[in-house]
Write a protein that binds this DNA or RNA. Structure first.
Ligand code: MN
Ligand code: MN
Ligand code: MN
Ligand code: MN
Lengths: 217, 217
DNA sequence: ATATTTTTTTAGACTTGACTAAAAATAAGT
DNA sequence: ACTTATTTTTAGTCAAGTCTAAAAAAATAT
């Protein structure tokens, strides 16, 4: 039985591994979890002793099979709860992340699986993120970041890689929602901003917006 | 923002106040929360400093208005979640208490209120306990304990005062469920057990069962 | 190759919520 | 009223998870 804190570290290491394959650094974890590097080191020792990670001093960290299993279970719960909040309790996609951060630590396999069934075994959450099934398996649809599209190319917005309320509210305000067809009209070399077209409207978005939008070509 | 532990103490003090009006003792809290009296004293000091209770050394403790408000909010969440688990996720009444013990600490007023609406503002939980509304108000239906009935008298089982899995499974096994009409056939003076009748069947139940069954006359 | 900067770990301290053992206050018994 | 038993509080300790400051290791620059 892991503590909330241990689960949060495991989940964060898993998320970082998806990007930085080959070992996650102490500082990176500290930054994401908003804690100090020394606290991370303490926790890594603890997780290593519990045999959930492979950790060698100064060499970064990787989840082992057991750690990965736990990470996927927490991610599964997080995304199922987000789906529940949006689909059943009328929350909007920008309101659910912080509540799911709490709900993902509720311990009851039966609860998770009954919730999954109640929601009709959803494959993605309100942000387009895939939901692992009871065995930790999920469908990885092939997506590309908006910054990989050429001028003139278009794609369908299917996944957002930033669940913060501020960012999602910004997208909603500009009618950038999951399912929107986005066309790249122009790229500004000066600041890496793009002019995009959604429906009839054209407008400019900054690099920090662009890099969190993922599409199906 | 209270910790899980603080909320649990507040909730327990509230529950004990309903029985022992006029001040709850340190030892009683310790027994119910399954901790030591010295730990209770520590927490009472903390809650007193946060101005949630009236506490004088050696004199027992009472919730003040703010403490009562918090207690009712936790109780509301506990009972709404139990109702959700039974009505929406197909749990039985004996499986929900421990999960609700976790869910009652989730912090989000909107979540609680949306859940309430989703469940159609239920008035009682699966154990017949009243659910406080958004203002902390609830309908206190007048119930009597089974041990107050005379031989020959009958009543409808509407509330159970013990949420433990073992006890509830015992009731289910013997077909004693909320809504059952129970008639007292005989009282055994030797061990305070009763012979009761439900439907066609008559059988004997012990004092520890009797005292947790509440009825509408 | 050596010096400097950055990253990571260690050492020591703090907070929360628990514990044991001992002291103090209250309650009960004669 | 005085002794004994019970209840409650205090004093001191511990584990988890965090922090700051300092030391050690690794990476980078000259
Ligand atoms: Mn999220
Ligand atoms: Mn999400
Ligand atoms: Mn309960
Ligand atoms: Mn209940």
């Amino acid at each position: 039985m892991l503590t909330k804190s241990e689960e949060n570290y495991i989940k964060e290491i898993y998320a970082l591994e998806q990007i930085n394959t080959e070992g996650v650094s102490t500082n990176l974890i500290a930054q994401k979890i908003e804690t100090k590097a020394s606290s991370v080191t303490d926790m890594l020792k603890k997780l290593a002793k519990k045999e959930l990670i492979n950790y060698q001093k100064y060499k970064g960290v990787k989840l082992n099979a057991e750690g990965k299993k736990i990470a996927l279970s927490v991610v599964r719960k997080h995304r199922l709860w987000e789906t529940f909040l949006v689909n059943k309790l009328n929350f909007s996609w920008d309101e659910v992340h912080d509540i799911a951060e709490q709900l993902e630590h509720i311990q009851s396999e039966k609860l998770t699986n009954q919730l999954d069934a109640f929601l009709n075994f959803p494959k993605v959450d309100p942000h387009g993120d895939p939901i692992p099934d009871v065995n930790g398996e999920f469908i990885a649809i092939k997506t590309v970041c908006l910054n990989e599209l050429e001028v003139g190319e278009k794609g369908v917005f299917v996944e957002v890689k930033n669940d913060s309320e501020k960012f999602l509210k910004f997208l909603t305000k500009n009618n950038i929602t999951i399912g929107s067809e986005i066309k790249v009209i122009d790229k500004e070399v000066f600041d890496d901003s793009y002019t995009i077209e959604i429906g009839e409207k054209q407008f400019n978005i900054s690099e920090s917006v662009i890099k969190n939008i993922y599409l199906k070509r």
